[in-house]
Amino acid sequence: TFTSIVTTNPDFGGFEFYVEAGQQFDDSAYEEAYGVSVPSAVVEEMNAKAAQLKDGEWLNVSHE
């Protein structure tokens, strides 16, 4: 299960995956970082959410 939350205070020191406002979700980078295949429906969902981000916001993507 993939989830996401919007934050204005990303923790770059941890093992977190963020999408910056104005960027798209990079499923290849996510797969490389976590060894998890990302279904195309999830990629579309995360890109739709990322498109709604305002300046200074980040989308924190995770999975269980």
Rank of each mutant, 00 (worst) to 15 (best):
Q52G: 10
Y30E: 00
V61E: 03
K49F: 12
F2R: 00
P10A: 04
F25H: 03
V6L: 06
I5F: 15
A41Q: 11
T8C: 10
Y30P: 01
G13D: 12
V36C: 08
V38G: 02
A29I: 08
A29S: 08
T1E: 09
T7E: 05
T1M: 13
A29E: 07
D55A: 14
K49N: 09
L59E: 01
E32H: 13
E64A: 13
S62C: 11
P10K: 05
N60S: 14
T3S: 11
V6A: 03
Q24R: 13
G14I: 07
F2D: 00
L53S: 01
G56C: 05
A48Q: 13
T3Q: 10
V61D: 00
A29Q: 08
N60E: 09
A29G: 07
T3W: 14
Q23K: 13
D27H: 15
F12A: 05
Q52H: 08
T1I: 14
N47C: 07
D55G: 08
Y30T: 00
Q23S: 13
G14K: 11
T3F: 14
A50H: 02
P39K: 00
S4L: 06
F12K: 07
V6K: 03
Q23T: 12
V38S: 03
D26S: 08
G35W: 04
T3P: 02
T7S: 07
V38E: 01
V42E: 04
V19I: 12
A48T: 09
L53C: 06
A29H: 06
H63Q: 04
D55W: 11
A50Y: 01
H63G: 03
T3I: 12
P39T: 04
V38F: 02
T8D: 08
G22K: 05
A41V: 09
V36I: 13
G13N: 14
V6R: 00
A51G: 09
S62T: 12
N9T: 13
P10L: 03
A41E: 13
V61K: 00
E64R: 10
S62Q: 10
A51H: 07
Y34F: 14
P39M: 01
D11I: 13
F15M: 12
M46F: 09
T8G: 06
G35C: 10
V36N: 02
S4Q: 03
G56W: 02
A21R: 07
L53R: 00
D11A: 10
E57T: 05
E64M: 14
S4V: 09
A41G: 09
F15I: 12
L53K: 00
G13Q: 10
A33P: 03
A50M: 03
I5N: 10
E44T: 09
Q23F: 10
W58M: 10
Q52W: 06
F15H: 14
V42G: 01
E31A: 12
L59P: 01
F2I: 05
F2P: 01
W58R: 01
S37L: 10
E31N: 09
S4A: 13
Q52I: 08
L59G: 02
Y18M: 03
G22S: 05
P39I: 02
A51C: 08
D11N: 14
E64D: 11
V19T: 05
I5S: 13
W58S: 03
S40M: 11
E32W: 11
K54H: 09
L53Y: 04
V61G: 00
E20M: 13
D27F: 15
F25P: 00
S40Q: 14
V36P: 03
F17L: 01
G22M: 05
L59R: 00
S62K: 15
D55V: 14
V36L: 08
W58Q: 04
A51V: 06
T8S: 10
T7M: 06
A41S: 13
T7P: 00
V43F: 05
T1F: 12
G56A: 04
V43D: 02
E45Y: 09
D26Y: 05
V6H: 03
W58I: 02
K49C: 11
A41H: 14
L53H: 02
